[in-house]
Design a protein around this nucleic acid. Structure first.
Lengths: 215, 215
DNA sequence: TGTACATCAGTGAACGCGCGTTCACTGATGTAC
DNA sequence: TGTACATCAGTGAACGCGCGTTCACTGATGTAC
């Protein structure tokens, strides 16, 4: 029994071509970085003329914004799926690492060098907040030793940002540290700053995650 | 008593114009990011024609490489000066933070999104190793609780890279964690990932540094 | 001290390129009666 | 079922732009005798 068809053949074709454009875009980004993304080059690769792409995206900026959105979306979905399967903070860290290694340039598109003056649209910020929420839940689930540093006293403004999440200050703090530490280890690794240094970045990553989880 | 003059007036002029070109380049990078760096635009700002710059740099790539070299150099010098004045690991962290905040795009030129396929020349890698050495010394000077995790057992390959530095494994580990944690906190802050989250990134940074120093 | 020559900074024209984007259009696909 | 019309994907030409880079040159500065 086929599902109810609410999409016309033309609509299906449209979404398919849109997806194909994005795939070529990702390929180009993986190869030469996001700054080298060119609509004309994508069109050529797809065997069509440049202006044709304007049927699918208002322009280069909209395409890039869409790619950023998709990247955040896939990360948020990965987090939620893992959390739903009972993953703890360490498990989420490894979801992030796997996601990053799968396409380093995608990782940098989201977490890398910012373009001065660019501000992500609200709905993207929203998706980013979803990922934060998953991490915060995982931190709240972790046993805490109850000790509290200077920073924890300062953090209530952040609790408000997090939708008034009832986690203890130490958990809010730990959630932020999750991002900084895991991103620090990952981005230096992906940028090649550890190549030739004689150790395995994966083990350093694991050590950071262990420390973060309270060991 | 004037010092011995080994530089002719022409040479002095050359180095001065070179420096002026670099200054305009940094200004442009700070404004629009490194990918927007353009020789012609620099020349226009300086009131000269584009080709004139080829008297001073073989091309765009050489200019950028030189900027990266200068950035590393200034960071390494800052570290050494601080260490020479008795700064501990926390002091060095704040040197790095100050250096980063002074020109975020310079920070990202060095530690940000890598250009696929680009490899820094050996002399730049060398300067990077100098900065690493300063951090490692600071870590070796810190009291260690002697406990050792899984990662520490793996780290001897890295000791070799570090010129056979006699620091305990825990210090080597701490030096690496210094980079990942401090870079993680700094780069997320500079990229604006914390704006509007209701806490002060400087305090989070301090908390990370305290934790790193053994509290 | 003055003259002849070499050095070298900077110019302006030119080349070829690829970019994003617009526009008027052709031709195929889908829709309404 | 067939015909008239609307929708819309894709084309090719064109615009204007700025880029890195080369080349032959002018004119000023420095050097040697």
């Amino acid at each position: 029994m086929p599902e109810a068809r609410t999409e016309t053949p033309r609509e299906r074709y449209r979404t398919q071509v849109r997806a194909e454009i994005k795939e070529h875009a990702w390929e180009q980004i993986a190869t030469a970085g996001a700054s080298a993304l060119s609509l004309n080059a994508i069109a050529k690769r797809m065997g069509m003329s440049g202006p044709a792409l304007y049927r699918y995206f208002a322009g280069r900026d909209e395409l890039i914004t869409e790619l950023v959105r998709d990247a955040y979306r896939s990360l948020a979905d990965g987090f939620k799926a893992a959390a739903g399967s009972g993953a703890d903070l360490a498990g989420l860290a490894h979801v992030l690492r796997t996601w990053a290694l799968a396409d380093p340039q995608r990782y940098f598109l989201v977490f890398g060098t910012p373009v001065p003056g660019y501000h992500a649209p609200d709905d993207i910020t929203q998706i980013a907040a979803e990922t934060m929420a998953v991490i915060l839940d995982a931190c709240a689930a972790l046993p805490s030793d109850g000790t509290s540093g200077d920073f924890d006293a300062h953090i209530d403004g952040h609790r408000q940002w997090a939708g008034g999440h009832p986690a203890p200050a130490a958990a809010l703090h730990r959630a932020l540290a999750f991002w900084t530490r895991v991103h620090g280890a990952l981005s230096l690794e992906l940028a090649g700053h550890f190549t030739g240094m004689g150790f395995d970045p994966a083990l350093l990553f694991d050590a950071e995650v262990d420390d973060l989880s309270g060991r």
